[in-house]
Design a protein around this nucleic acid. Structure first.
Lengths: 294, 294
DNA sequence: GATCGAGCATCAGCACACCTTACGGCTACC
DNA sequence: GGTAGCCGTAAGGTGTGCTGATGCTCGATC
C-alpha cells in the first residue's frame, strides 16, 4: 500500500515545483522530503521525478500519481470529518482566509456569534486574496476561505473544493464630480487598480476593454479605503464593490456599472461534514443574509 | 492524518467481527491489531470499539469510520493502479477466484493465451464459490473473481466491485428417462442440490417454489459431473447449466427450464486500470465469446 | 569567465513507531 | 467449576523516518 504522506509530498511537489518549497510547507527539511520521494519512487518501480538542471520535474507517471493522490487525500479528509461529526460538538481551531473588506464587514459579527454559540471553538483569521484561496485550502493552510467572482470574470471550478454562495453586491465606478459617468466616459482618466493577479484588477481591466480601451494605470492599491481616498484626491477613477462603499469621502461619486460581484465561502470537499466547518458556514451565511446589500 | 493501514484493520473488523480473525487475515498477531486499533481510537478521540463480553463490537462512530474507509482504500488502489498503468506491461501475479466449472472450461484456454501474450505474468487460480467472491476481492485474497447470477436470484450490487458480463447460458433440468419434463413435473422426485449458501442451490429452490412445492433433498453435491452421474444412477433430479453439460451420461435427459445463468468477471474498482487486470479480463471475454453457448 | 548561491542527494546518528512474545483478566460453554 | 477462546497490557527488539552535515551540479551575477 502506498503511503499517503509520501503521496501528499508528491502532490505538493506537482504544484510547488521544488523539493525545498515542499519541505518548507510541511515543516520538514529538504533532506527528509528527498528521501521520502526517493522511497516512493522505489516503491512505484518507475521514475516519478526527473532531475533537470538544479531543479526537479515530474515525469508523466509522477504527474498521473499526483493526480490520483487528490482522491486519496479527499477520502482521508472525509474519513476524519466523519469521526469529528460523530464527536458532535464544534471544537478545535478553524483557520479562515478572507479578503480585507470581508474581514472588516462580515467577520466581526460572525466571529462574535460563533464565540457565543460554540465557546470551545478557536478562530484564526488570515488575510488572503481570493485568488490565493484555492491553493491555501489545498495546502491545508486554511480550513475556510472566501472566494469571489465577478460576472465578467468566470471563476475556474477548483477540483476538491466545495463552496456555497454568500452574498452578491453591485459594483460601482468611483469618480470625483457631480455628473453620473460610465466606464466608457472615463477612458481618458488614469485608473487606480489592485495588484496584479487579483480578481479586482482583472474585473476592472475587463470592464475597460468591454468599453473599447485599455486602462492607464496610475496607482496600484489593494485597500478600498485607500482607493476611495485617492479618488477623492483626484488621482484617478476606480471600481469598488458595494461592501467597500462605507465612509465614502464627499467629493467621490459612485455609479453602478451593471456588474455584480459574488462572494462564496469555500472549503475542502472532504471537510464538509466537520461540525466546526458547518457551524462557521451557517453563521457566515446568516450574517451575510442580514447585511444590507444592493 | 489517519493511517490507512489502521483504517483497513477497522474495516476488516467491521466484517469479520473479531480482532483475532483480522489478525489472521492480515498476518499479524492479535496483540498488534489490538494496539493499532487502540491507537486509532485515541487519534479519533471517541470510542470506536465497544467491549461486549469476550468479543468486541463497533460503535456507531466506528461503523461510520469503517464505511468512510472504503473510499480511502479505493482511492489508494486506484493510485497504485495508475503507476502500474504507467509502467505499462502486464507483469506480476494475478490471483483468480473461479468456480469449478469455469476452471475446467474457460480458464485453460484463457491461461494459455495469457501466458503466450504476457510471458511475465504469473497466474494463480483459486477455486472459489461465486458467493464468496466479493468478500475475497475485498479482503485482497484474489484480484479477479467470477461471479454469477441466475435471473431468478437477483445479485446484490457489491460496493467497490466492478464487473463485466462474460457469458449467458441456458439452465437445464437433468432427469433420467425419455420424456421431456418440467420442474413442475418432478415435484415428487428427490433432488440433488448444491451446498447451502451457494447460488446454484438458491436457484434450484427458487424454481421449485415457483412451481409450487419445496424440493426434497436427497444428495448435497457441488460438482456437476458428480451430479450428472447421480442423476444417471436414478438418485434424483437436478438443474445444471449449459457449461456443465459435457459428457452427459446416456440415460440422462436435459430439458431447458427457461432460466438463464449469467457469469460476470469482477474485480476491485480500484484495480481496473492495472494492465494485468485489463489483459486478463480482455482475454477472458474473448474466450467466452468463442465458446458455444446457448 | 570566476564566484557565489540555490537546489538536490547521500550519509551518519538518533528517536520513535511497530511488531512480537509473554502474561493476566474476562466470558461463554461444556 | 473447569476450560478454551478472546482481548488487553507490559517489555523488548527491529526497522523506519527524521535531522544535521557534507558534497555535488547548475544557473545567475559581477
Amino acid at each position: 500500500m502506498l503511503d499517503p504522506r509520501r503521496l501528499r509530498l508528491l502532490d505538493d511537489l506537482s504544484r510547488l515545483g521544488t523539493i525545498a518549497a515542499v519541505a518548507q510547507l510541511r515543516g520538514y527539511t529538504a533532506s527528509a522530503v528527498s528521501q521520502q520521494l526517493a522511497t516512493l519512487e522505489r516503491e512505484a518501480g518507475i521514475p516519478l521525478l526527473e532531475r533537470t538542471g538544479r531543479r526537479v520535474r515530474l515525469t508523466d507517471a509522477g504527474a498521473a500519481l499526483a493526480a490520483a493522490t487528490d482522491d486519496v487525500l479527499l477520502a482521508l479528509e472525509q474519513a476524519e470529518a466523519s469521526v469529528l461529526a460523530a464527536r458532535g460538538t464544534a471544537v478545535g481551531t478553524v483557520r479562515i482566509g478572507a479578503f480585507p473588506t470581508a474581514v472588516r464587514t462580515l467577520l466581526p459579527t460572525a466571529l462574535a456569534r460563533l464565540a457565543e454559540r460554540h465557546p470551545g471553538l478557536r478562530l484564526h483569521v488570515v488575510e488572503l486574496d481570493p485568488a490565493d484561496v484555492p491553493a491555501a485550502l489545498r495546502d491545508d493552510r486554511v480550513d475556510i476561505g472566501l472566494v469571489q467572482d465577478y460576472d465578467v470574470v468566470p471563476r475556474a471550478a477548483a477540483r476538491g473544493i466545495q463552496s456555497a454562495p454568500l452574498l452578491e453586491e453591485a459594483v460601482h465606478l468611483a469618480t470625483r464630480g457631480r455628473a453620473a459617468r460610465t466606464v466608457a466616459d472615463v477612458r481618458d482618466e488614469p485608473w487606480i487598480l489592485a495588484g496584479p493577479g487579483t480578481l479586482c484588477r482583472a474585473a476592472a481591466v475587463h470592464l475597460c476593454r468591454a468599453a473599447g480601451y485599455e486602462p492607464v494605470t496610475r496607482h496600484v492599491v489593494d485597500d478600498f479605503a485607500t482607493v476611495l481616498a485617492l479618488v477623492a484626491a483626484g488621482q484617478g477613477v476606480a471600481i469598488v464593490p458595494q461592501l467597500a462603499a462605507v465612509d465614502v469621502p464627499p467629493p467621490v461619486r459612485l455609479d453602478p456599472v451593471g456588474t455584480t460581484r459574488r462572494t462564496r465561502v469555500a472549503h475542502r470537499a472532504g471537510a464538509g461534514r466537520r461540525p466546526e466547518i458547518r457551524a462557521f458556514v451557517d453563521v457566515l451565511r446568516a450574517v451575510a443574509e442580514e447585511l444590507p446589500h444592493a
